[in-house]
Amino acid sequence: MGLLILTTMAALWTVMARSLLKATIGLAITSAAIAIIIFRLNSPLAAVFELSVCAGLITAIFVSTISLTKPLTHKEILQVSKDRIKRYWYLPVILAIVGALLIFMKARQDFTMIQAPGSPLDVRTMLWDFRRLDLLGQVMILIAGALGVVLLFGENKNDER
């Protein structure tokens, strides 16, 4: 419960932080808290991936992107915040109404979990034996992403010349 609250607070901080760097740190904290939750839900391999890739690699990508771009000045940030409040004042109202409707709606108490067919397997067996085609797709996505990044950065190098 405490971890879930920490995750939500970190996510809120991520969204509301005025500085992009603080938002990135908030995202890393959210990822770390989610990794602990995943670990406690008996999924250690996914937790390791979440912690190393999401809290580590993605944070590094964001920090390097922010350092390569020009952040807004304090005055501009204040102006953007004021404009945002004027433009989107109705969003919290909609959220409150939807939340109230969901709370007052009669939830089905006879909630039944559908058991998936087959016996629970080891994650490695599942990944390498039953999801081979998906792995091929993953490799193709990785190659496409790598080529995309190389192309984008290569184009920038040509522009600088």
């Binding site: 839900l41 008996n42 999924s43 391999l45 996914a46 979990m113 559908i114 058991q115 998936a116 629970p120 397997l121 080891d122 994650v123 067996t125 599942m126 990944l127 999801r131």
Partner: peptide, 9 residues
């Protein structure tokens, strides 16, 4: 649902 391996993958 007891399908931890599938969820992890």
């Amino acid at each position: 649902t007891g399908q931890v391996a599938l969820a992890q993958s």
